[in-house]
């Protein structure tokens, strides 16, 4: 439904700003366990950047960036990363989500924990991003087969 905007300003600003937002989103995800931020916020920011492109540009370009069909599977994979890591720690002898048991060789326990948290945050971030985009896409797409 979203047609390409006729205004070059919008197209330009959208294209210009979107990458910066994405970088910021990644920063927020990776910075999550040191300061404010984390998987959810980062994921939401990433989703916002994708939505910006979807709003400003024509749908072909937007699909190039993140295909509509990918929304649900990627969301599921992101959640699976979280659940899977939890399950892995459990299988490796620790408690659920006890990151210290993750099999990263040559690292101190604190670093392993940080790594584990990062992985989980990443999973959550991807999941949130994909899910939010999927909601958007579904809402947009509803009219087409309605």
């Amino acid at each position: 439904m979203i047609r390409q905007s006729t205004s070059p300003i919008i197209v330009l600003i959208g294209r210009l700003v979107s990458p910066f937002i994405q970088v910021f989103g990644l920063y927020v995800i990776f910075h999550g366990h040191y300061g404010p931020g984390g998987g959810f916020q980062g994921g939401a920011i990433l989703a916002a950047s994708l939505l910006l492109i979807r709003l400003c540009l024509d749908s072909e370009t937007a699909q190039l960036q993140f295909r509509q069909a990918l929304g649900t599977p990627v969301g599921i994979l992101g959640s699976l990363a979280f659940a899977g890591i939890g399950l892995m720690t459990l299988l490796l002898g620790g408690e659920f989500l006890d990151y210290a048991f993750l099999p990263f060789g040559g690292m101190k326990p604190a670093e392993i924990r940080a790594m584990g948290i990062l992985l989980v945050e990443l999973g959550i971030g991807v999941a949130v991003m994909a899910t939010l985009v999927a909601i958007f896409d579904d809402l947009i797409g509803l009219e087409d087969h309605g």
């Binding site: 939401a44 989703a47 916002a48 939505l51 939010l132 958007f136 809402l139």
Partner: peptide, 8 residues
């Protein structure tokens, strides 16, 4: 809240 929800 201000971004995604409003867009939706």
């Amino acid at each position: 809240g201000a971004g995604v929800t409003t867009v939706l």
